[in-house]
């Protein structure tokens, strides 16, 4: 359902919620944002909880330092206190470290919601059409997305080639030494690939700064506007209730 929404109103709504979470230093709002995004992903989009937990690991690691000082040692770091004091609408209802930790998770979950329910190609297209994202930049982003699976394939081939040279079977997970030795060939692959793609795009008429037309894209519909309005009204309601 969320995947069917137009990327622009969805992006606007996610940014509004993230801005509110950043500006309002209140644990209840952070928890509301986190639970709402999690509920939509799990309940509506049917994304497995385990996958969502895994996706939250980097965000949790980022916020973990703030949490450990606050919860385990019952003290706040200077950074956390300064952050709390700098919030204009600060109403600390809990340990500031805990609020910051929850904020990181809530912002992470909302970003995940946007990423998992938005077609990246369509997003780049609407950014080029409606927000004047330069075509050269937009297609470079699309190329970067193409390169990710191709880099994975190239990585596998390189690892097989190295295993063959060593006469040993390929390890399931590459060790640090192997990772280091693969970094440069992969970087070289990415650079070669980007160069070839740039030449091909030029040969097919892409000129930086020149106007282009676009393949027709689905317009913003009433349902998209209603979803945006509903999300904003919910946020305002929550802010007023706090």
């Amino acid at each position: 359902m969320l995947s069917a929404l137009h990327p622009l109103p969805k992006l606007a709504l996610c940014l509004i919620w993230i801005a509110a979470l950043v500006l309002v230093f209140d644990l209840r709002l952070q928890l509301a944002g986190l639970i709402l995004a999690l509920g939509l992903l799990w309940g509506v989009e049917r994304i497995a909880l385990g996958r969502l937990v895994l996706l939250m690991v980097p965000f949790a690691l980022f916020g973990f330092g703030l949490l450990t000082t606050s919860v385990l040692f019952h003290r706040e770091s200077g950074f956390v206190l300064q952050m709390a004091q700098e919030q204009g609408a600060a109403q600390p209802d809990a340990a500031p470290g805990l609020v910051l930790f929850t904020r990181v998770l809530a912002c992470g979950m909302i970003s995940t919601l946007f990423a998992l329910t938005t077609d990246p190609g369509r997003l780049v297209r609407v950014l080029m059409i409606h927000l004047r994202l330069p075509a050269a930049f937009g297609f470079a982003m699309l190329q970067a997305m193409h390169i990710v699976p191709d880099l994975r394939r190239e990585l596998l081939t390189l690892r097989m080639a190295r295993a063959m040279r060593r006469g040993r079977p390929m390890r399931r997970v590459p060790g640090p030494t192997e990772v280091m030795s693969l970094a440069i060939p992969l970087l070289a692959f990415a650079i070669r690939r980007a160069t070839r793609a740039a030449i091909a795009m030029e040969a097919r008429g892409l000129r930086p700064g020149q106007p282009r037309t676009h393949l027709p894209q689905p317009p913003v519909r009433g349902g998209d506007i209603a979803a945006l309005a509903g999300g904003v009204i919910l946020l305002i309601g929550l802010l007023m209730a706090l």
């Binding site: 190609g121 297609f139 793609a197 091909a200 795009m201 676009h214 393949l215």
Partner: peptide, 14 residues
């Protein structure tokens, strides 16, 4: 290695 679009339609329309 020289395709520009993200989807087949993007590619043909480029």
């Amino acid at each position: 290695q020289t395709l520009a679009g993200f989807t087949v339609a993007d590619e043909i329309a480029f």
